[in-house]
């Protein structure tokens, strides 16, 4: 058994309550699903004096849809996201990705907000959130602000939150009519594995022309990687196999993976191209 070092625990009841608690210690950590944090506290990769549980804050577990888009409480468990009717109707790719993170018992706890805050390069939800132009809404001692998801992860395990800040929810604008999105990842097993590479794409096609396209990659850079140039290459064009190949090549060229126990770098780069082509074909085909 791996043991955690001692820490204090507070279950915050409101956003303000959580802000106060997080401000009270230099080394305070937010606990949502715990599927990353508790592993890290056990292994010693992270330490905490205080753990602030945010799951009892109603706003943090809410999944709410309105005319503008979807608000995904930062601590909403994947299993509830995957089962939510609005998510399944308007963001089917997001429902799929929520059902992809870990296995069933992990999904009972893990949250997409946590997936984002943990800032792992391999986070499955983040490339799709980037593709869907999602914004992270955070609260802190200086009030609330928004951060574009593509700017949220700044290094492996490091996010853009200022001291005392925490993620309240993720806002995903309602996709324009004609938009399709997809996240594809490659893992050697069929479950319970970390993406060797992942590709999230969203694209809008109106009257045979691509009016919007965004693509982001997992596991091929120190952070989830937004490949802006793919949008530039696709927008204004009519979808075709050749165009998709060209865009996939751009994505592959943007990848700068490392070799480790999960896969060699050249293989990750190769997979990046394959997945980009397949994901783009899925949304443009």
């Amino acid at each position: 058994m791996l043991q955690m070092k001692p820490f204090e625990y507070i279950a915050a009841s409101s956003v303000d309550d959580a802000v106060r608690a997080l401000g009270s210690r230099a080394d305070a950590r937010v606990l949502a699903g715990g599927t990353d944090l508790i592993v890290q506290l056990k292994s010693g990769r992270r330490e905490a004096e205080l753990v602030v549980d945010v799951k009892r804050i109603p706003e943090l577990t809410a999944i709410a849809m309105d005319a503008d888009g979807l608000r995904l409480g930062a601590a909403a468990a994947c299993i509830h996201i995957a089962a939510n009717r609005d998510v399944r109707t308007h963001y089917p790719a997001l429902a799929e990705v929520a059902a992809l993170i870990g296995g069933t018992a992990i999904q009972g706890r893990a949250s997409i907000g946590g997936n984002l805050c943990n800032a792992a390069p391999s986070a499955d939800a983040v490339p799709l959130l980037i593709a869907l132009s999602a914004r992270a809404r955070v609260a802190g001692p200086d009030g609330r602000r928004e951060i574009a998801v593509e700017d949220f992860c700044i290094a492996p395990g490091k996010n853009a939150l200022a001291p005392g800040e925490f993620l309240v929810d993720v806002f995903i604008p309602k996709p324009a009519s004609g938009t399709r999105a997809k996240y594809l990842r490659f893992i050697p097993r069929n479950e319970m594995d970390i993406a060797v590479a992942g590709v999230g794409v969203a694209a809008t096609v109106v009257d045979g022309k691509i009016t919007m396209a965004r693509l982001a990659l997992a596991s091929v850079a120190p952070t989830p990687l937004f490949v802006r140039e793919v949008g530039g290459a696709l927008e204004g064009q009519a979808p075709s196999a050749a165009l998709i190949e060209q865009a996939a090549a751009l994505a592959q060229a943007a990848a700068r993976p490392i070799s480790d126990m999960r896969a060699p770098a050249d293989y990750r780069r190769h997979i990046c191209g394959v997945l980009s082509r397949r994901a783009l074909s899925a949304v443009l085909g």
Binding site: R189, N190, E191, M192, D193, M261, R262
Partner: peptide
């Protein structure tokens, strides 16, 4: 056993050792 050059096992977990799951 995926070893570093220095002889450290880098995948010493049931996540990264990748035994077959029921889906495999």
């Amino acid at each position: 056993y995926w070893m570093s050059d220095g002889g450290r096992m880098m995948n010493a977990s049931l996540l990264d050792y990748r035994m077959p799951t029921i889906l495999d």
